[in-house]
């Protein structure tokens, strides 16, 4: 059995989700290749070749692959799948966009966001906002799978696989890239961060969100997240949303400030190692999952926390 892993990257650097997906792939088969689809992404392919346990790296480059267009990725991957029994893709917004398209072209199911590999045909995945875990066995000849990276350990580096350049495929057809507005941040990326500080509706404005959440995140070297309510209200950009339909995080420490703890939010953070909640309502559901709860107004609690961190030499 041979498995193809789709590399997560931004054309410049390889993302950690790839290493985690390789771990899931190695649980299916020892024959794991990585596909780097992008533009100007040679450095990414070289980095992928260093992941331990990888047989070889395929590099395909074109403008539409660099833009991550689903139609272009599908045109590239579908013919490649004649040589593979499974495709594993990190469940990023890009992966979720193209992977089902590939599955339908191959007339197979997609197994979405697996969190465990039971065997080469049996997988566990969360359903109903993580309120249940479903174990499914696939009868399809080819397994098309997206992988929730936070559920797997990152594969180590130390390998030296070969990099093979392949044809980029037929392109994006009737879809045209217009532009992209990406938020540039010096902070660690949300999904891979060791510490995440998230703000909720309680912030009341974008200015307040920045004034309260960002200094705390900077102090802790943390990534910043938000509830849907905070994103909808424009306090934080869309890609900060943590939850059932946003990003899933599982950091060492998750600090929720002014977030009530709706099931849709918990779905994205309840696998964090330690959860801290700051909320002025002692009955807020977030306290049911918090290891340490501080019932207080964030307006005084966050400055106090900064002071206490300073005093403790953090």
């Amino acid at each position: 059995m041979a498995v193809l892993v789709f590399a997560d990257h931004d054309n410049a650097s390889l993302k950690d989700g790839t290493h985690k997906t390789v771990t899931a792939a190695l649980a299916l088969s020892p024959d794991v290749d990585i596909l780097v689809a992008g533009q100007g992404a040679k450095a990414v392919a070289d980095a992928a070749a260093k992941i331990t346990g990888v047989r070889k790296v395929l590099l395909a480059e074109s403008d539409s692959l660099g833009q991550g267009l689903a139609e272009a990725v599908t045109a590239l991957v579908v013919p490649l799948m004649s040589g593979y029994d499974a495709l594993l893709t990190p469940a990023t917004s890009q992966g979720k966009n193209f992977s089902p398209r590939i599955a339908a072209k191959l007339d197979v199911a997609q197994i979405s966001e697996i969190v465990e590999v039971v065997s080469a045909s049996t997988f566990v995945r969360p359903i109903y906002a993580g309120n249940a875990l479903e174990t499914v066995e696939s009868a399809d000849s080819k397994k098309i799978i997206t992988v929730r990276p936070t559920a797997f350990k990152a594969a180590a580096e130390g390998g030296s696989a070969s990099v093979e350049t392949i044809d980029a495929g037929a392109g994006a057809g009737k879809t045209h890239f217009v532009d992209q507005k990406l938020v540039k941040s010096a902070r660690p990326e949300l999904t891979g961060a060791k510490i995440v500080v998230s703000g909720g509706r309680a912030m009341g404005s974008a200015e307040e969100f920045q004034r309260v959440i960002e200094p705390l995140a900077d102090k802790l070297g943390a990534a910043v997240g938000a509830s849907r309510a905070a994103v909808d209200a424009g306090y934080a950009p869309n890609d900060y949303q943590v939850g059932q339909t946003g990003k899933v995080v599982a950091p060492e420490l998750y600090i929720a400030v002014g977030i009530s703890g709706a099931i849709q939010h918990l779905a994205g953070m309840k696998d964090s190692k330690i959860i801290v909640a700051i909320n002025k309502d002692g009955d807020a559901p977030i306290f049911q999952v918090a290891d340490f709860g501080l019932v207080a107004d964030y307006k005084s609690a966050v400055p106090d926390l900064m002071t206490a961190l300073n005093a403790a030499g953090v």
Partner: peptide, 27 residues
Amino acid sequence: RLKVLKVAEPAKRTAGIKVETAGDLVT
């Protein structure tokens, strides 16, 4: 195409403790 073998409840997270102050939290 998929056979559901089992639908289980995820491991429950138990509520921890309430702390009184930010200092206690850091400790």
